[in-house]
Design a protein around this nucleic acid. Structure first.
Length: 841
RNA sequence: GCCCGAGUGGUGAAAUGGUAGACACACGGGACUUAAAAUCCCGCGGAGGUAACCCCUCCGUGCCGGUUCGAGUCCGGCCUCGGGCACCA
């Protein structure tokens, strides 16, 4: 073979790596380690998307680079394979989810292998395998034993179309995240996890993580800690108190009414007979409203007066008590004091129902809108004249002293709704006795396997499919008849701890070996999509902390450094009538888009890839026509890893040409022999300098995950070498070593052709000689008043005085200085000179 | 509405506060070839000037202002796009 043909060399080296176990994880638990992890995929029927490999390539480069730098590297891959699509498919076709899952995994694995990723496939795992979910169930028991798992009858998000309950975060505007079906509220018995117990730690420990600020911020907002006070309001003519939570105790004098959530237990007690009918009507209405309707109607405030009054504990004012659904039963105490002067929602409500609005903080205009900013307290008795901050502290002190309230903290975060009415998930290791008490299964009985089932349909009532597995359902424990839990765990369960199982994936006796855990954890680099910013990453951190408290893991946090790879978008094309034209039928050069069938010119725009927009790029086809190495290189060369960027198949030509140039540095395309330019003589100074600078730059860029600029630096080296008649072997080999993490197949092939017996993956990364990374002569720019006037070639180590005199003696600079007086001279060593001048008088 | 992030050539993009546009795509020109492809070399932000050639000037990083000897980069305000959250008291 004389020419570069990826279709021949890529499978060859993939087989070689497989056969030689090139990427097996070292077993020795000493020396520097690097654990680099991808968010493992859900193996969908559609197969790999060009978006997946951008993160996978980045981690693969890091894994290969760190190995070449002498690290023990753990770089595994697995499958997050429980979940809805396989089950939906089973309902439609009767195909068992296990069958679908295996088929999809095989396809994903084939695609990942065709990209030459250096995963240790001996550590492959699937969340659906009993050897894995056995330990998912075991972790659940740990949570249960620590009182962190409990059963509650809670109004949940019931999705009739999917036949399941969804977590709050899986519901978007009252519709299911998956499938966009309507969701209604329905009370049901559910498993909950007490993630709220960990809210403070989940919040505080964010500080210690090297994560993008945006993700940390999203988690902070999701946890939603707010500090304020709980205040008790006496109810007039009743022996009852209404407790409210407020972040603004300073505005207590401005409370002109109170609001209870429709579900608040005191509503029935307080409502006067005169108001009972209308209140009941309002509550019934609110109960039947789905979340969708509640949010859709959010613009307009609704509510009803109970007829009862409360007493403001500070000034004894008698204020009416209302019921309204803008107050949520699930947050705070389900009741608020309404301060329309300084809260926009209360303001709108007060305007709608003509309730009084009092200004207690200066600085706004309460005839226009609520003033939520800073100011000075007025109309507020003993806190008049104070600032907002002072007034908060003084009010809380007063409330505490008089037994009227206390400082309080609330979180937006709710407990985690942890059960689903589905078949294709982990069964709960829990049994129910005849008096309906739960009993955890003994650990030795794990795994509790999923029973075989022919009908995956949920029942109309919402009973899960597992309730149909009659033989499985009923059993005896300690001689007592028991019924198994028929809910299953949500998809998040398996992904909450897979990174721990990778450390010791075949352990039959425990979830992982502690020593292995101590060596490999935490994950040094975790790469995945930003769509998991809150859900997966928060849940996994929660489980990890529980395991940490239980002494099973040695670190408080699982993922040290996190990177979100950017979305890969793509151009989509529309003809004059506005219909999408498939990418495959378009000739596109970045300037002009033409329908290759009709010659019609097309409009184009960058959009998210989707079938409907006909702009999905299939990685198999790209590998087929350009090779895996070019594909990998292109995805990295497109731009910074974290940025979203548009795919343009035409641009792959550039990196493919680069790889061909590298090929020709080593191989004579005519004969297939080694290129004649290759030479064992030492490189000349210019090449040697370029070579060492490239090593330096590429190493720095890889460490900082700047793969795009690393590639461009290698291109510069290749362009430099190509221009030389004689290509020193030292530089060419060094280039291959640097390129190997990016384009491993090509690097292996050329390395082998250069006569090496061992895989290039076993060779060390080149080291730059600092002496050759600096130039003797450098360009120093001369500016006058900040404008570039001249560039001088001067010795790199030149002193300020000499540089200045060289500048002033320069003909062009001197003429520009005619009639000017130098008022200041700036010298930046190795960079520039700036002469600040003004006209001489 | 609130919280993040991003706006730089025809395109993807580079640039510790220090020569804006590295590296590529597309395009144009040249060499090689009977020819084409491939390859190699050159040009490529805009406007203007001088000119056989060498070059020179002004403008230019979404918009307006500020800090600085010097701003794509830092600060304030705005606009547009993308992502997230959304009655959380």
């Amino acid at each position: 073979m004389a020419r570069y043909e990826p279709s021949l060399i890529e499978p060859k080296w993939q087989d070689y790596w497989d056969q030689h176990q090139t990427f097996a994880t070292p077993t020795a638990l000493n020396g520097p380690k690097y654990y680099v992890l991808d968010m493992f995929p859900y193996p969908s029927g559609a197969g790999l998307h060009v978006g997946h490999p951008s993160g996978y390539t980045a981690t693969d480069i890091m894994a290969r680079y760190k190995r070449a730098k002498g690290f023990n590297v753990l770089h595994p891959m697995g499958w997050d394979a429980f979940g809805l699509p396989a089950e939906q498919y089973a309902i439609q076709t009767g195909t068992h989810p296990e069958v679908t899952t295996q088929k999809n995994i095989a396809n994903f694995k084939r695609q990942l292998k065709s990209l030459g990723f250096s995963y240790d496939w001996t550590r492959e795992l699937s969340t659906t395998h009993p050897d894995y979910y056995r330990w998912t169930q075991w972790i659940f028991l740990q949570l249960y034993q620590r009182g962190l798992a409990y059963v509650a009858e809670v109004p949940v998000n019931w999705c009739p179309a999917l036949g399941t309950v969804l977590a709050n975060e899986e519901v978007i505007n009252g519709r299911s995240e998956r499938g966009d079906h309507p969701v209604v509220r329905k009370p049901m018995r559910q498993w909950m996890l007490r993630i709220t117990d960990y809210a403070d730690r989940l919040l505080d420990d964010l500080e210690s993580l090297d994560w993008p600020d945006s993700i940390k911020e999203m988690q902070r907002n999701w946890i939603g800690k707010s500090i304020g006070a709980e205040v008790d309001f006496k109810v007039s003519d009743h022996n009852a108190n209404i407790r409210v939570f407020t972040t603004r105790p300073d505005t207590l004098f401005g409370a002109t009414y109170m609001v209870l959530a429709p579900e608040h237990p005191l509503v029935q007690t307080l409502t006067t007979n005169a108001q009972r009918e209308s209140v009941q009507q309002y509550i019934d209405q609110a109960a039947t409203k789905s979340d969708l309707e509640r949010t859709e109607l959010a613009k307009e405030k609704t509510g009803v007066f109970t007829g009862a009054y409360a007493i403001n504990p500070l000034n004894e004012a008698r204020i009416p008590i209302w019921v309204a659904d803008y107050v949520l039963i699930s947050y705070g105490t389900g009741a608020i004091m309404a301060v329309p002067g300084h809260d926009q929602r209360d303001y709108e409500f007060a305007r709608t129902f003509d309730l009084p609005i009092i200004e207690v903080i200066t600085g706004g205009d309460i005839s226009e809108a609520a003033h939520t900013g800073h100011g000075t307290l007025v109309n507020s008795g003993f806190i008049n004249g104070l600032s907002v901050e002072e007034a908060k502290a003084v009010t809380i002190d007063y409330l505490v002293k008089h037994g009227l309230g206390q400082k309080a903290i609330n979180y937006r975060l709710r407990d985690w709704l942890f059960s689903r009415q589905r078949y294709w998930g982990e069964p709960f290791p829990v049994a129910w006795d005849q008096s309906n008490q739960p009993h955890p299964l003994p650990e030795q009985q794990l795994p509790l396997r999923l029973p075989e089932l022919a009908d995956f349909q949920p029942s109309e009532s919402g009973d899960p499919p597992l309730s149909k597995a009659t033989e499985w359902l009923h059993f005896e424990m300690d001689g007592l008849p028991m019924r198994r839990e028929t809910n299953t765990m949500p998809q998040w369960a398996g992904s909450c701890w897979y990174y721990l199982r990778f450390v010791d994936p075949h352990n039959q006796h425990q979830a992982w070996d502690k020593e292995k855990e101590r060596y490999w954890m935490p994950v040094d680099l975790y790469v995945g999509g930003a769509e998991h910013a809150v859900l997966h990453l928060l849940y996994a951190r929660f489980w990890h902390k529980v395991l940490y408290d239980a002494g099973y893991v040695s670190t408080a946090e699982p993922f040290m450094k996190l990177i979100n790879q950017g979305l890969i978008t793509s151009y989509s094309f529309k003809d004059a009538s506005g219909r999408y034209v498939h990418t495959d039928d378009v000739d596109f050069d970045g300037n002009q888009a033409i329908d290759s069938r009709t010659g019609e010119s097309l409009e184009f725009q960058v959009e998210k890839m989707s079938k409907g927009k006909m702009n999905v790029i299939n990685p198999d086809r790209i590998i087929e026509s350009y090779g895996a190495d070019a594909f990998r290189l292109y995805e990295m060369f497109m731009g910074p890893l974290e940025m979203s960027k548009p795919w343009n198949t035409k641009s792959i030509d550039g990196v493919r040409r680069f790889l061909e140039r590298v090929w020709r540095l080593v191989v004579d395309e005519e004969t297939g022999a080694l290129a004649t330019g290759l030479s064992d003589t030492a490189p000349n100074d210019a090449i040697k300098r370029l070579y060492h600078k490239t090593i330096q730059g590429v190493s720095d860029d890889i460490e900082a995950l700047r793969f795009n600029t690393a590639i461009s630096k290698m291109m510069v080296l290749v362009n430099g070498l190509t221009k030389e008649d004689v290509r020193p072997r030292e530089a060419v080999q060094g280039l291959l070593l640097m390129l190997a993490p990016f384009a491993p197949h090509l690097a292996e092939e050329l390395w082998c052709r250069l006569g090496h017996q061992q895989s290039i993956a076993k060779s060390a990364f080149p080291v730059a000689d600092p002496e050759w990374c600096v130039d003797d002569l450098i360009t120093i720019v001369v500016q006058i008043n900040g404008k570039k006037r001249e560039a001088l070639e001067l010795p790199a180590d030149i002193e300020q005085a000499e540089a200045l005199s060289a500048a002033k003696n320069n003909e062009r600079v001197a003429s520009a200085l005619q009639g000017q007086q130098i008022v200041r001279e700036i010298f930046v060593p190795g960079r520039l000179i700036n002469l600040v001048v003004k006209p001489r008088r």
